[in-house]
C-alpha cells in the first residue's frame, strides 16, 4: 500500500545514530550519491520524525543496539518512520526489524515476523568440504527475489559487501527481496511497503552499493517498479 509523501520532506535524510559505531561511511556515501541532499546523522527523535527519509544502520551486537536505541528514546521515532516514510535498514538495522534474535536472546522491534539466527557451526562447510568462516565477511552474490525500485540498474547476482554472524529468517516468504548463499540460501534483503532492509553494507559495496543508495534517495516509498504500476499485483 503505497502512501503519499509530502514534497517538503524530499531534501532530508536522517541517519539514525544510537551510539553504535561508525556512521560516517553511511552519511558520506549518501552525500556522494546525492550531493544536493541534506544528510543528518542524528540521535534526536524529532529529527528522525521530521526527516523525509530514514536510514537505520547498526553495528556490533543486537542486544547492545536495542538497549542503546531505547536509552536514547528512539524506539517510537524508528517505529513511526518505518510506517510512514522511505526507510532503509542496514545490517543490524535490518535484524532489529524482526521479532527476536538468537544473539543475546533479545526481542527486536517486531515490524516483520521472523527471527534472527546465528550461522550454525555444523553447516559451515562448502561443497568441497572446506570450512566456511564466521563472520560471513566479504563480497557475495545478491540474488533478487522481487522486482523493486531499489534494484533499478543493479544486476541480479551483483556482489555486495557483507560482514555478519547472524542472519534474518522471515516467517513469511513474501518479505524476501533477495537471498544469498553461505552455504545455504539466507535472506539478504527484505521489503514491504516503504521499508527496504539489507544485510549487506551498500555504503561499502562500491558501484553496486552506491547505485542502491542512489535509488533509495529517489524512492517514493512505494513498491511498484514503474509509475504507471501502482498496485502491488504487478510487482
Amino acid at each position: 500500500m503505497p502512501r503519499p509523501y509530502q514534497f517538503i520532506y524530499m531534501t532530508d535524510i536522517a541517519v539514525i545514530d544510537y551510539g553504535m559505531g561508525n556512521l560516517r561511511s553511511v552519511s558520506k556515501a549518501l552525500e556522494h550519491v546525492a550531493p544536493a541532499v541534506r544528510v543528518v546523522v542524528t540521535s534526536d527523535p524529532h529529527e528522525v520524525i521530521k526527516a523525509g527519509r530514514v536510514v537505520f544502520p547498526g553495528q556490533g551486537a543486537m542486544p547492545d543496539c536495542m538497549r542503546e536505541m531505547d536509552a536514547r528514546g528512539l524506539r517510537q521515532a524508528v517505529l513511526e518512520a518505518a510506517q510512514t516514510k522511505p526507510f532503509l535498514g542496514i545490517c543490524i538495522g535490518m535484524q532489529m526489524l524482526f521479532e527476536h534474535s538468537e544473539e543475546g536472546d533479545v526481542a527486536g522491534l517486531g515490524l516483520f515476523p521472523g527471527r534472527v539466527l546465528r550461522f550454525p557451526h555444523a553447516a559451515m562447510v562448502d561443497d568441497k568440504g572446506n570450512k566456511l568462516k564466521v563472520p560471513h565477511m566479504g563480497w557475495n552474490e545478491v540474488h533478487q527475489a522481487m522486482a523493486h525500485p531499489l534494484w533499478a540498474g543493479i544486476g541480479d547476482g551483483a556482489r555486495f559487501y557483507f560482514v555478519h554472524s547472524y542472519y534474518c529468517e522471515p516467517a513469511t516468504p513474501d518479505l524476501v527481496a533477495a537471498f544469498t548463499h553461505y552455504p545455504f540460501p539466507f535472506t539478504s534483503a527484505v521489503a514491504r511497503d516503504n521499508i527496504f532492509a539489507v544485510q549487506f553494507h551498500p555504503e561499502k559495496s562500491a558501484a553496486a552499493g552506491l547505485a542502491l543508495l542512489g535509488n533509495f534517495v529517489l524512492w517514493d516509498g512505494s513498491v511498484s517498479t514503474t509509475e504507471s504500476c501502482a498496485s502491488s499485483s504487478c510487482m
Binding site: 568441497k128 566456511l132 566479504g138 563480497w139 548463499h181
Partner: peptide
C-alpha cells in the same frame, strides 16, 4: 562457493 576471496 559464491563468497569471493578478497585482494587487499
Amino acid at each position: 562457493m559464491p563468497l569471493a576471496k578478497r585482494i587487499i
